[in-house]
Design a protein around this nucleic acid. Sequence first.
DNA 1: AAATTTATGTCAGCCATATTGACATATCTT
DNA 2: AAGATATGTCAATATGGCTGACATAAATTT
Lengths: 184, 184
Amino acid sequence: MADINFSRPSAEGDSRATEAAPATPRGGDLRWDIIELLFFAYRDFVGDADHELEAFGFGRAHHRVLHFVHRYPGLKVADLLDVLRITKQSLGRVLKQLLDEGYIVQKTGNNDRRQRLLYATPKGEALVAKLAGLQTDRINRAIADIGPAGTETVRQFLRAMIDRDDPDKVLETIFAAGTGARAG
Amino acid sequence: MADINFSRPSAEGDSRATEAAPATPRGGDLRWDIIELLFFAYRDFVGDADHELEAFGFGRAHHRVLHFVHRYPGLKVADLLDVLRITKQSLGRVLKQLLDEGYIVQKTGNNDRRQRLLYATPKGEALVAKLAGLQTDRINRAIADIGPAGTETVRQFLRAMIDRDDPDKVLETIFAAGTGARAG
DNA sequence: AAATTTATGTCAGCCATATTGACATATCTT
DNA sequence: AAGATATGTCAATATGGCTGACATAAATTT
C-alpha cells in the first residue's frame, strides 16, 4: 500500500512493512483529497449549528428533527424515522422534548387518525431558521467564489452522492425537484 | 416565519401562528436545498464505511483515527487531538484498540522522546484503503457527470466551506496544497 | 540540581444518542 | 371479530463524546 501517498514511510518500526503485496486491489486511484475535504467541510458546517444549539440545551438530533419537520410540514412519524434512519425509541426522546418545549406540535391525521402529523410552531420555525442562517452564511461564502454555474455543479455533485435505491419520501421530493431544471 | 418556504402551512392547530413578526432577520434567502443535500450526501458517504467497519468491530471514530494516521504518517497524538477535536480520553480508548489489534504502531520521537509518533501498519493500510475504496467509488460515480472542471469546482467549494482561522497541522497542509494550482 | 512545563496515558464517572426487545393502545383493514 | 398498522413507552445496553483528577517520563527553565 506504500504507493497511495508519495513520501509515506509506513510503519517500519515494529511490523516490517517491506513493500508487501497490497491486500486491496486499489493503487493510487483513491480520492483521498475529496474524502478529507468532505470530513472537514461537514465538521465545520454542522459545527455552526452545534454551537448555537448548546444554548438551547439541544443537540444535533433535535436539529435534524426540527429541520425536516419544518421543511416537510405534516410529516408522519414513520416518514421521519425513514429519513433519519434511527429507531422510534431514539426519535421518541428527542421528539418528546421538542413537543414539550413547544417547538413542534402534532395533529391527528385527517384520513388516518392513527397518524401524528408533525408541524413546527413559530418558535420552532424561528430556531430552525436561525440555524439555517448560520449554515447559509457559510454556504454563501463558499459559493461566492464559484459563481452560479459552479453552485449548480455542486448541487449536481451532492445529489449524485446520495443513494437512489430505496429513497424515502423526502428524498423522492428532492430527486423530483432536481430532475427538472432548478429546485426551490 | 411562514415566508421561508412557500406552501408551508406552519403550525396553526395548537399555537396559533397567525403570521407573527419574524424572530430572525432572514426571509426566503436560506439555502435549504444545499443544507439538505449536504446532510444526505454525507450520511450516505460515511454509511459506506460504517457498514464495512461493523465487520471489524470498529466505529466511525476508529476510521477517522486510522485515516489521518495513514495520511499523515508520524502524526503526534497532540496533532490528532487537534484534527479530530476530541479529548485525549476519548481518543485513548479508540487508539488503544487500534494499537492492540495491530492497525497502528507508535514510535518514540527522535527529537523529543516524549512524543509517540503514529504510523499505520500494513494491516492498517489495508483497512483504510478498503474503506477509502468504497468512498472513492461513490465519489467517482458522482463526479462522472460533472467532468474534471466540475470536480475542481467541487474541491474549491469544499475547501471554502472549511474554517481557516486556527487551522491545525493537517489543515495547513491541505490549504497549502490547494492555494497553488492542483492538489494531489 | 531542582522546579516547572509538556506530552502522553489512565482511572472514574457522567451524558447524549444510538441500539434491541417487549409490550400497550388506538385505529384502520379485512 | 380478527389482524395489521401507527405510534408510544419501559428497560437494558453500547458507543463515543465529556470533565476532573492524577501519574509518568522527558524536556525546559530557573
